[in-house]
């Protein structure tokens, strides 16, 4: 089985994001960038499947600016076999990413595509489902467990009321949730090895996909600040304030 894994380069989850002074977006200069955490989980899952002998090849794909190749290297250092970088400086939105992915799926013919459930920058939670739709494949979103048996994928999903398990025909698209696994750190020897692994570069033009954003960002604002910092000395004061000042209990 061959697996394609999506890895998006995003602002690191520990960074306190700031809106730009001109309200056109958020500050990205000199900001730490990392692999989207859900995509680390996706890479880890693919590598574990390979270690278990279920998967023969793990190909990671990232789309965007030149530095996405660093994100691909990180995945290669974790253990993925090779990378594909769709190079563009254009803003990429989920529908365009899904269309680009479709062309790569057509070329690579994987049995499984694993994406994150959500990119922590745009917080869209769309790309995997969109890809599954345009491929005409089933989708197993928000996965907390993935197993393979009798040519089917058994995917346990985190849903609002608890969890549920679906059986999907193959090929299939899976998106990862937090509890699927705990991603490994790359070891130094593997980081060295990753430097020699192959990364192919393509462009949206070569893939014949128009990536023009169809959702235009008119402006970006800071959320209204919240006035906090109030303290109470003890529980008696807390209960009193909740009853008599805030009136919420």
């Amino acid at each position: 089985m061959k697996v394609l894994v999506a890895v998006k380069r995003v602002i690191d989850y520990n960074v306190k994001v700031r809106v730009k002074g001109d309200n056109t977006g958020v500050e990205t200069a000199n900001v730490k960038m990392s692999m989207n955490p859900f995509d680390e989980i996706a890479v880890e899952e693919a590598i574990r499947l390979q270690e278990a002998g279920t998967v023969s090849e793990v190909v990671v794909v990232s789309m965007g600016e030149a530095k996405c190749s660093e994100t691909i290297r990180t995945a290669l250092a974790m253990g993925a076999d090779r990378g594909i970088h769709v190079l563009t400086d254009a803003e990429l939105q989920p529908l365009a990413v899904a269309k680009l992915f479709k062309t790569i799926v057509d070329r690579e013919q994987p049995d499984l595509v694993i994406l994150g459930k959500q990119a922590i920058d745009d917080d869209c939670s769309q790309t995997g489902q969109m890809l599954a739709a345009i491929l005409g494949w089933p989708q197993g979103t928000f996965a907390s467990k993935v197993e393979f048996a009798d040519g089917k994928a058994l995917v346990t999903r985190e849903v609002d009321g608890g969890s549920e398990t679906l059986s999907l025909t193959m090929p299939a698209v899976v998106t990862t949730d937090l509890r699927l696994n705990e991603p490994r750190y790359a070891s130094l020897p593997n980081i060295m090895k990753a430097k020699k692994k192959q990364i192919d570069q393509l462009t949206p033009e070569e893939l014949g996909v128009d990536v023009t954003p169809r959702l235009v960002t008119l402006r970006v604002d800071e959320p209204p600040p919240r006035q906090g910092g109030g303290k109470v000395a003890d529980i008696a004061e807390l209960v009193d304030k909740l009853k008599n000042e805030a009136g919420v209990i």
Binding site: I11, K16, V17, V19, V26, I120, D121, D122, D123, R214, L215, V216, T217, L218, R219, V220, D221, E222, P223
Partner: peptide
């Protein structure tokens, strides 16, 4: 966007 640390006004075409 960004865990609610920014609010984007977006228009669809």
């Amino acid at each position: 966007i960004y865990a609610g640390n920014a609010l984007a006004t977006v228009q669809s075409k």
